[in-house]
Write a protein that binds this DNA or RNA. Sequence first.
DNA 1: CGCACTAGTTATAAAACTAGTGCGGTGCTTTATT
Length: 478
Amino acid sequence: MDLHQELKSRFGFNHFRPGQEEVILSVLKRNDTIAILPTGVGKSLCYQLPGEMMDGLVLVVSPLVSLMEDQVASIRKRGEKRVAALNSFLSSEERKSVLDEIHKIKFLFISPEMISRPDMTNFLMKLPISILVVDEAHCISQWGFDFRPDYLRLGEFIRSAGNPPILALTATADARVETDIIRYLHMSKPNVIRQSLDRPNLTYTVQQLEMEADKTAWLKERLITTKGPGIIYVASRKRAEELTRVLQQEGIAIASYHAGKEAGDRNIIQQQFLTGEITWICATNAFGMGVHKDNIRQVIHDQLPQSAAAYVQEAGRAGRDGELSAAVLLYVMGDEQKVRFIVQHDLPDESQVRHFAAMRTSGQSIESSAELAGISETGSRILRYYLETHSIDGVLKMFTKLKYDKEEKLRQMIAYVQADSCLRAQLLSYFDESSPLKHDMCCSVCGTANDEWLLSNGRPANPRRLLPWQERIRLLLC
DNA sequence: CGCACTAGTTATAAAACTAGTGCGGTGCTTTATT
């Protein structure tokens, strides 16, 4: 069977991108496979091509409904109609028709929450699954432990379904993430295919400032004098809104993006960024997954990310076209406290857990016990997950360990901003990659990064300023 | 937790202190019954 011929006839490509062929061969041999390929390499081909060549259903676990919709649309576009997504966007009739017609479907996209529902597990486990794909597999590690526990239950489904071949896809995984993927997907001797995470066309800068307010001034100057498109990552929704307002007043075509905005608005803003109507996005970490924009010139962090993996992922959204691009991290002494609070407080603390346990003993329901103990909805879901297999004391021990892990990850970023040696080498070392060959344009510590190439000709070309209500109407009309 | 901000205090006022308050991310799910 000639792979290249398949590639040509089904997808119209003449050759594979680095890593693809190796991954596909591994999948065709029905090996468990982990593919760690940089963004923009075409990860979806890694399951689409073997999926077409193998009998049975390709089940793709995807973290976001919007991502599923995009993938379904893109597969349809190339002429494959045997594709569907199973999620809460569907009406109950639509959902029923997908289930009734399941034997006509080749690619089925689904969330970890949906796949974990007992009725769904029961239904899906009986199907002939050729490949179980976990897209954005770092979510297991990044979200599973404290946000979306159903990511940790995927292994249960895999076991029920008779251990079909697994393909885990991600752009960034350090040793820890890789271990989590193997463990929680019950992988047996997986074939790990890893491309270097070094991005030669990215320059890394840590910009230390005196005060918080200096950041706003610095960003103003930066966005006026250098070119986009770009993303500014901030740590809170409020900051996203405020910073956007300030920069809009400078005539910059920028919009904010965070989970507090309506889905419709988020969609429109993302589209406008893709088409170039908006040059800058000021966003929380809600923005980015599944955004395919090649010509992003700058990714600027207003605050420390929670881990090196998160930073590499976010900064890595710059320069997919291979052109020179900048990754800048702004830092004011003590910034880590803000991030620390956020990451340490998504798990319930000891007194809350004990309060919860006492309420349960006194006969309260799980829901009201959590509420009485002041535990958030996310916290309560997490707590419930760990209580399935742990005692109260066991859960507390677990939480202590998880918080310690989070602190370790944050420490990587603190070390990064304080580094007195090459930033690129520092980042790569977290992924067990050694220092790359010397790049001409490297980082602010090497002293070889200069931003002259980024300079734009003064003010942005289109300083048309709109009042908020005009902006709103414009968005609605698009 | 620790920073940013506000309101109240203080030897006529002004500027500088203190005490008190607020804040801080990510997404899936949802199939009734009068």
